[in-house]
Design a protein around this nucleic acid. Structure first.
Lengths: 110, 110
DNA sequence: TCGATGTATCGAGGATTGTCAATATATGAG
DNA sequence: CTCATATATTGACAATCCTCGATACATCGA
C-alpha cells in the first residue's frame, strides 16, 4: 500500500472515547429520539413526563419507553419519578461534551 | 390519558428537520466513522486519502469505503479525486449546523 | 495498450434496531 | 385491599446495519 501523504493522525479519538461518544450520537441519530430530546428541552420546566410524548410522536407507550431507555443509557436524559409519573429532562453537560468532541473536528477550509 | 402538566412544545424540531439531523447524527454514531472524521480533521491539510485510513482502523478497504460513503451521503465529508487517490475532508458547515441543533436543547438545570 | 494500484460496488451472512401486543411493576385514589 | 393509571419489560418480527470476499471501475506509468 502506497501512501500519497504523511499518515500523521495526532489528536485522533482513541477507541474508547470514540465508542462512548458514538453511543450518544447513535442515540441521537434517530428522528424519534431527537424529537424527544427537543421536546424535553422545550418543555416548560425543562422536563416532561413520558405520558406527554406518546400523543405528539404517535407511537405506542412501549416504543416511547424504549426510546427513553436508550437516551437514558446514553446519559443524555435523566428520569425522576414523581408519584405515578416519571419526569425526564436533558443532561446539559452530556450534550455539551458531545458538542465539544465535534468542535475540534471543524477545520478551516483548505 | 391524563396529563400531569401542560403539553406545550414550542420550538420542537419538526419531522423533516429531525430526519435530516438524525441522519447526520446516525452517521456519526458509529465508532469507526467518528474516528474517520476525527482523522480527517486532524490530518495535515485537513484532508486525507482513503488509503491512509485502512491501516489505523484495521478494516478492509470495502468496509472503509462503505463508511466513507455513509459520511458523504450525510453531507459530513467531501471527496475530491486527485489522480488515483480521493482526498476526503470534513464539511465544517455541516458539523456546525449539527452542533447548533444540539445547542438550544441545553437547558438551565431546574 | 497493458499492468499496477486506489476506489467503488455487489452479494451475502450475522448482528443490531425499531416497533408493537402482551404482560409485569409501581404508585396513588377510594 | 382493590382498582385505575403511568411506566417498564418481554418476546417476536421485519428492516436495517456492519463486515467481508469477490469483482468492477478509474487513473497512472511504462
Amino acid at each position: 500500500m502506497e501512501f500519497c501523504c504523511t499518515p500523521v493522525f495526532a489528536g485522533v479519538l482513541d477507541e474508547d472515547e470514540a465508542v462512548d461518544t458514538a453511543t450518544a450520537l447513535a442515540a441521537l441519530g434517530d428522528p424519534v429520539r431527537l424529537r424527544i430530546v427537543s421536546m424535553l428541552a422545550a418543555a416548560p420546566q425543562g422536563s416532561a413526563c413520558g405520558c406527554e410524548l406518546e400523543s405528539p410522536l404517535q407511537l405506542s407507550q412501549p416504543t416511547v419507553s424504549h426510546h427513553l431507555k436508550v437516551l437514558r443509557e446514553a446519559g443524555l436524559i435523566i428520569g425522576e419519578r414523581r408519584g405515578r409519573w416519571v419526569h425526564y429532562r436533558v443532561v446539559a453537560d452530556r450534550l455539551n461534551d458531545i458538542r465539544a468532541v465535534l468542535a475540534p473536528t471543524v477545520h478551516a477550509p483548505v
